[in-house]
Amino acid sequence: MALNVNLNAEGLTVGRLSPTLTGPIAAVVIIALVIGILPLVVSDIFILLQLTLFMAYGILAMSLGWVWGYGGIFSFGQAAFYGLGGYTYAVVSINMGGSTTALFAGVAVPAAFALFLGYFMFYGRISTVYVAVITLVVSLIFYKFLGHTAGYEYTIGTAHLGGFNGMPALPPINTPGNPMSIIWPEDMFVITGICLLLVYVGLRFAMHSSFGRAVAAMRENELRAELLGYDTRLYKMAVFGIGGAVAGLAGVLYANWNSYVSPTVFDLGFSAQIIIWVVVGGLGTLVGPLIGAMALGFVTIELGTQQTVDVNLILGVILVVFVLAVPEGVTAQARALYARLMDRVQARA
């Protein structure tokens, strides 16, 4: 995996910044610039709204990139945490009016649920494949259950869950302590962008902490990590919990963007899309899933505007082709290309 190469190469390169740092710093700078400049340049509010959604998708993709690409836990259930985040935000914000508590609840509840589920799965020592199936089943349970909540007995406080009709007219994020001051779409774009940056930097940081190194060891060889004294069950649970929190945050941002949530967030097709983003972008990286989510989000929307070819058909072909032909994703390909270029430059110099 590309990531190992990076970890091994750290500290060995002389003359330029360690490759482990150049990439992330460049990514942060580029993302920050884009977020800072775009709202000033783009006057079309529609494009900004679209980008806000893609950034929420990007956060979601990074959560899977973290859990799967970095922790080695293949989770079909990121959509479940995402949806749970959205629904929690909806319920709490409708009940409380203000959005600050709702925002935190929307991250905390999915995280707690992920830890709970992770306890069941990892302390039961269920194999990777079965983890995939169980997370899939959990998304389905949510989908079925919330689709079933149309009756008025399914009301939490003043929030009615609404079955397949979903929960409309959610209060948008507002300034903490002053619910009256409204946040405009341009501000929402910046807020989502800042969340994206924070998630990226946070996960990067986690990867390079001692915790992250233990996780990498566990992914590469679980038995060896255990023999070295790491409780891999606990580490897996923690990785899964962090992934749940990040996915929940993405769900909150999505619910905000849409001011509406419905059971379709738990849909299997959506779970599949998240996996496609990560596979296309590159497993084992964080920027990869981000790029994958944005590029494919754009493609899906563009394809949705034409009627000749079914969207599923094209997504399916993309997925099959990538698994067979580009199993490492575009980021690894780009990196390999970059490395080859640098080698050639150095050889000439």
Binding site: T128, G269, N312, L313, V317, I318, V323
Partner: peptide
Amino acid sequence: RMMDTLIATWGLSLLFIGVITT
């Protein structure tokens, strides 16, 4: 390559859905 099979067959399922919908 269990995980790759899983993803490729998932792609296949989307493909079949797409074809039949078309």
